Amino acid sequence: MRGLSLVVLNMVGMLALSPAASAATCGNDGSGFANWLSQYKREAVSRGMSSRAVSRALSGVRYDPRVVRLDRSQKSFKLSFKQFYARRVSSSMIRRGRSYIENNRRLFSRIERDFGVPPEVIVSIWGLETGFGANSGKMSVMRSLATLAYDCRRSAFFTNELDHAIQIVARGDMSPDQMRGAWAGELGQTQFLASNYVKYAVDYDRNGRRDLIRSIPDVMASTANYLKRKGWRAGQSWGPGTKNYRVLREWNKAKVYVKTISVMATKMAGR
């Protein structure tokens, strides 16, 4: 990759994280959470995590019944593309996207050189995910992930995400208090899960931290890095039926969401 030193994970005091779920017993209400959390902390350290990072990340964490209610209330995606696009995208949103690109032309040119992803695609994702950073979420990521890791419905998945969230703290990217996002623990202006944050986030402003909440260069470059690592083909179309369209499916499995990214990017590019 030209002009950029890729992130090398600083794993001092930590071993590679196992995707296996903690053996701690899950629960379907908050009554067993405190015991579960104590056991999770012990097991996390036994699996090679820094005891200091575990303690710091999970200090004061409590069970959040609201998170469980939100998880249980998810419904199947039933909107048509036309309905979804009308709800989520407007002409003013397209104009704002173009303005962001024009006002940050040097940054986006460098990102396209380094990762091969056009600015229109990155900015479309940014706009759809959080309204260009306006709605990235205010819930404690550690509290949400600990609650969902304890909850029996998807314990293994969210235990893995909690492991990686602690790794973000351990390597110094963000403090636990700074890690605020959506109810399911998504972080930053383009909503990275913690495991994807660890794998794909880059320190593009070169300040020593990968900050997907406050650093626009880090946000934009990390989103491009994700797409590149998933197989994005530089200089090629992103419309339906293309290889790049299939890469967008890696970002979000919902067909209407992927089509919306593609159409938004095409309109921003003036095609």
Rank of each mutant, 00 (worst) to 15 (best):
Q189S: 08
W251P: 00
R171E: 10
K243N: 13
V198T: 02
R96L: 12
W126Q: 09
K78H: 15
R143N: 08
L6A: 14
G48P: 00
S109N: 11
Q167G: 05
Y257P: 00
V258N: 04
R249V: 08
K243E: 14
R2S: 14
N225W: 08
W183G: 01
G32F: 01
D173M: 02
M264P: 05
R154W: 05
A34T: 10
A149R: 05
P119I: 02
G116I: 12
G181K: 06
L148W: 01
L58S: 01
S31Y: 05
L107I: 06
P176D: 09
I111Y: 04
R2N: 13
K259R: 15
A165D: 00
G48Q: 00
S51D: 10
G97D: 01
Q39G: 11
K82C: 07
S222G: 11
R42W: 06
S50H: 01
G188T: 02
A170I: 00
V123Y: 01
F77Q: 15
S215Y: 09
I122A: 02
G188K: 00
W238A: 04
G30W: 05
R42P: 08
R214V: 08
N104Y: 03
S99W: 10
M220H: 07
S38P: 08
D205W: 11
T266N: 15
F108Q: 02
D29R: 04
I168Q: 00
L128M: 12
V61D: 01
L248G: 04
A21E: 12
R87I: 10
R249P: 13
M11C: 09
M1Y: 14
A221P: 13
F132D: 07
R96F: 09
N103P: 05
M264I: 12
T242G: 01
R154G: 06
F158D: 03
R98S: 09
L187Y: 04
F77K: 12
K253T: 13
S59V: 03
I166H: 00
L70Q: 11
N244P: 10
Y245D: 06
L70H: 05
G241M: 02
L37S: 09
P176T: 06
R2L: 14
